[in-house]
């Protein structure tokens, strides 16, 4: 099981998304989610969106393992 987190405006698109999923890469999660949640899929495909695994920014083809925490991060706006 992969745990999913959505931050910022991505959270608004992900209200009905389950908190866990089975997938082998973040890119695969994005494809799976886009089928059922097309608006979220579109938002995740924007080039500025970054993905992290276990709180480290990674490439979209990073291999995932059981229990990984995958977070989708829109451009940050703190400070």
């Amino acid at each position: 099981m992969i745990n999913l987190l959505f931050f910022g405006r991505l959270g608004d698109f992900a209200k009905d998304v389950p908190s866990t999923i089975e997938a082998s890469t973040p890119a695969e999660i994005r494809e799976l989610l886009a089928v059922e949640f097309p608006d979220l899929g579109k938002a995740l495909h924007q080039p500025q969106v970054l993905v992290s695994v276990n709180k480290m920014i990674v490439d979209w083809d990073q291999p995932l393992f059981d229990g990984s925490e995958v977070a989708f991060l829109p451009p940050v706006t703190g400070g």
Partner: peptide
């Protein structure tokens, strides 16, 4: 520190106006 904090640290701002919430764009 401020320049990097603003562009790299994982914070997201939203604002409310007349009961309507909106995420701030970078």
């Amino acid at each position: 520190l401020m320049d990097y904090l603003k562009t790299q640290a994982t914070f997201w701002k939203s604002v409310s106006r007349n009961g309507e919430q909106r995420w701030i764009e970078s």
